[in-house]
């Protein structure tokens, strides 16, 4: 319901802009929607959507695969954190998108370079958020684990993991927006599929309705991913912990 309300507000603003500007540069939402539905299969929009989804999910999973252990180690082992955190802080603000050509040379112009770019961009904020989550685990719980002779594995499973799960989800929410923007830019280079490619392709051909249809799909892809993250969080994280 809250998503529907949000969509209605965006549509209303879009209608107002289209009405006031009255130019083909901003077509009316219903025209765009009809185009997206009508051309979804003929113009291979479903393929563009699936390619983008594949790239963003792969990037997210690779980023988390490395960010979770990095954050856990930095949060648990102060000696290593003194090395890890400065490295994270040094590399975090670099404009990673500028390294896309480097990734393309090293990893090829296919999917891998795009996926790794997304992964690298998500990795830094996710690592820092998870590290902070681990550091904020109440000392009382860790002392309890010591008093009750929990093994390292049990501490990880019963205390650290459930305590940082909410942090993992919030880092996902924070980085999803960034990763969608990066996805768009990465797909404008050396791509034959993907919503970013599709948007630029329509733009070059001055087909604004098609361009907006692809933009709308990118936005819906973002919304879908946010809904999935919220749903997964409700499933995995105990409400009181959030």
């Amino acid at each position: 319901m809250k998503y529907l309300r949000g969509m209605l507000v965006v549509l209303l603003l879009w209608y107002i802009a289209a009405f006031l500007i009255a130019s083909p540069v901003i077509p009316f939402p219903h025209t765009v929607l009809m185009y997206a539905i009508g051309q979804f299969f003929p113009q291979e929009m479903h393929l563009h959507l699936l390619y983008s989804l594949y790239r963003i999910l792969s990037g997210l999973f690779i980023a988390l695969f490395f960010a979770i252990p990095t954050g856990m180690i930095a949060g648990r082992v102060p000696a290593l954190d003194r090395l890890i955190s400065p490295v994270l802080y040094l590399l975090y603000p670099l404009p990673k998108i500028a390294f896309l050509p480097v990734f393309m040379v090293l990893l090829g112009i296919g999917d891998l370079s795009k996926i790794i770019l997304i992964a690298v961009i998500i990795y830094f904020p996710a690592s820092v958020t998870i590290r902070d989550g681990v550091k904020e685990i109440p000392f009382e719980f860790l002392q309890l684990a010591e008093a009750y002779h929990l093994s390292r594995k049990q501490v990880l499973k019963d205390i650290i993991w459930p305590a940082i799960l909410p942090r993992i989800f919030s880092s996902l929410r924070i980085t999803l927006g960034i990763s969608l923007s990066v996805l768009f830019i990465s797909e404008t280079y050396a791509a034959s599929h993907g919503l970013g490619y599709s948007i630029m392709n329509y733009w070059v051909m001055a087909q604004y309705t098609g361009m907006y249809a692809a933009i709308m799909l990118l936005s819906l892809l973002g919304l879908l991913l946010y809904i999935v993250v919220d749903w997964a969080e409700r499933l995995c994280v105990f409400p009181k912990v959030k």
């Binding site: 009382e140 719980f141 309890l144 008093a147 019963d158 205390i159 459930p162 305590a163 009181k240 912990v241």
Partner: peptide
Amino acid sequence: FQQDRLLPWK
């Protein structure tokens, strides 16, 4: 312990 220290997620 003085506080129950029950894990809220269990």
